[in-house]
Write a protein that binds this DNA or RNA. Structure first.
Lengths: 370, 370
DNA sequence: TTGTAGGCGTTATCAT
DNA sequence: ATGATAACGCCTACAA
């Protein structure tokens, strides 16, 4: 690395002050066209461009939005590929950030070192998006009084008094359960949830109970949960569920509602290996509507949520807060939508690219609200 | 936001100099335990932690590694979900970066604004990882003389004299073609490539030709390419290929080798809708070994490449360069591996989670090299 | 072990 | 339209 040149060299080389160079490089105005040309020429010649770091210090604006997410990866192959959800959030955040002229700084909070990492990231950002479970609520609050923070869970946001972006888990899942009970007439439903500390999973289970109860059926008190929102997790949970039922001399549930698509895929695998036909013997549903839901056989009935949009909306919220400052807590709840395919028992075209529902399509919408 | 306090307040509050506060906050040593306690207490009380930006300016180390990737998204749903490759690279980069104590700043270079965005990002980072096609080679060179850069393509790295991380596309694809020709005896193979400017796609096609020629068969001069490494792109390319063949009064190829898994999935869809059986009528293969390759039916024979590892290795390379400084260009080539499943015509267990090959498994390895 | 003081590379304020 | 010149918040010799 040759000695990096600074704004001083450029100023001298172009015969103006550093202030003027700064003006030319910034979006600002306040210089003649001739000056602009000379400065740019000098910059090009010296192969210089302004230091984002110095610029950030001086202007109190780094052009960086941080994104903290929980590290769900492990060494197990099946688990590792799992966090497609986070990948989508990252994509959405990136795109909204770029639209606003800043970049996204990502970091996974691994276990105990979470707080330190979070501080390190926060200290470089103008604002922060925090995926649910990436941070405990106390640390969340700490960060929130330093930079604008938006948490990806309406629930958590409410508790910590932090801006939030979430989805309407309840409507989605209730719609799904209503479909299973009313249209297909299933009466023995089981819920296989994700991590017990996932706000989304908790909300989905609550909605599941409501839906089941609303249909006049017996609602289980706790989900058949497992450690992860993963294919492996789903497989293990369903295997356990089946074992337990078998030990009790009971038959498998008529329908298994899973916490997300990946778990549902795991469920499909276990059921298939136990020679239980889906949806003939057991119906299965997911949540998320990832690409895999279309590709797996039978194709997966699920609840779609706009994951990329969640990430994008969160960044927009941070940016808005950056501009606004005061104003009371804001919360955005994005809509979900039931997507009917084959795994619930619906039958329709099985073309490779059939998409979504038909008659029974359900849509639940909720706008943003204060 | 209440007035943020600075190192000065903390110094005063704890009765030491700012230098000492700095020492306590940095990993450094050079202070008594008692001092440390007092400083930490003051920091906690004032609810202060050091500004990463200021720290970066002063220490010339931001703790940020940049990651530039091409924006392959579009508004088309099928295309949008596509860049699973990049998602994996991001994950790998993040994990290696965190291990080294820094975070990853990501940005997608969209079209013409690419250069400006790249400079903005580079000006905030200690080093940069650039995914192939994210930047033209000229801009790549510009950045490389400012911060350490590692490009994700051995080919590009060689041309621009920049450190690189790549995979052994050739061995993988040659192994695949050898399998198709020798084991299955296919003689009419077609190649459906990705974007014409993708170094990976180019290399894979070159290897395809070699492999076909080595089997004494006629090698096409150009791939049946399409705009994107996407499911939609694969579908369109294969549909075109089939149409063209049909117009010429020819039968479909006996095997279609696709540029990546997503294109292969698109191929599967088109073939199915045209009532061509895979692998009975036409064999199909992919590249990458994404999760979807296991889930799609028939399961996809493909070439595995360690995508996450690519991202991780790239970050390690820039970190190494950060420490080293001089030293000549380095290039790491990661191994690929043929993974045999059903879509090539191999038959074996169809359990939902069957993984990879059996007898015919091929492995090609290549260590790192100067 | 601790303090002093001079940067780090820009931006922003106030003049001119 | 342009120039001085303080910040910006911290690190790091150099001294003590």
């Amino acid at each position: 690395m040759p000695e990096r040149s600074t704004i001083y060299e450029v100023a001298r080389q172009s015969g103006v002050s550093t202030a003027t160079v700064s003006r030319v490089m910034g979006n600002g105005t306040g210089f003649s066209e001739a000056t602009r040309t000379r400065v740019l020429a000098a910059a090009a010649e010296l192969d210089w461009f302004p230091s984002g770091t110095a610029r950030g210090l001086a202007s109190r604006r780094n052009g960086i939005i941080g994104l903290l997410f929980p590290d769900l990866g492990s060494s197990d192959d099946l688990e590792v590929e799992s966090p497609l959800y986070v990948d989508q959030v990252i994509r959405g955040a990136e795109s909204a950030a770029t639209a606003d002229g800043d970049a996204v700084l990502i970091a996974a909070t691994r276990g105990a070192s979470g707080r330190a990492l979070a501080l390190a990231v926060a200290s470089k950002c103008d604002g922060l998006v925090v995926v649910a479970r990436a941070l405990n609520e106390s640390d969340l609050a700490t960060l929130a009084q330093r930079v604008p923070v938006v948490v990806l869970s309406d629930q958590v946001g409410r508790r910590t008094n932090v801006d939030a972006v979430g989805v309407d888990n309840r409507s989605g899942l209730r719609g799904l359960v209503a479909h299973l009970t009313s249209v297909h007439g299933y009466t023995d439903l089981a819920f296989v949830g994700g991590p017990a500390d996932s706000p989304d999973s908790i909300e989905r289970f609550a909605a599941f109970r409501q839906g089941v109860a609303a249909a006049g059926l017996h609602a289980p008190r706790a989900p058949d949960a497992d450690g992860g929102f993963t294919e492996g997790g789903g497989a293990r949970a369903v295997a356990d569920l089946l074992d337990r039922r078998s030990d009790q001399g009971r038959t498998p549930p008529r329908a298994i509602v899973c916490g997300n698509d990946e778990m549902a895929v795991g469920a499909l695998g276990v059921l298939s290996s136990q020679h239980l036909h889906v949806p003939g013997d057991v119906a299965v549903t997911g949540f998320d509507d990832l690409a895999i839901a279309r590709h797996v056989r039978p194709s997966l009935t699920t609840v779609a949520q706009p994951i990329r949009e969640i990430g994008a909306e969160a960044v927009r919220a941070v940016v808005a807060r950056l501009a606004d400052g005061a104003a009371q807590r804001r919360s955005v709840v994005l809509p979900t939508r039931v997507v009917l395919r084959s795994s619930c028992g619906c039958t329709h075209g099985h073309g490779h690219r059939e998409t979504a529902a038909g008659d029974e399509q359900q849509t639940s919408r909720a706008g943003s609200r204060a």
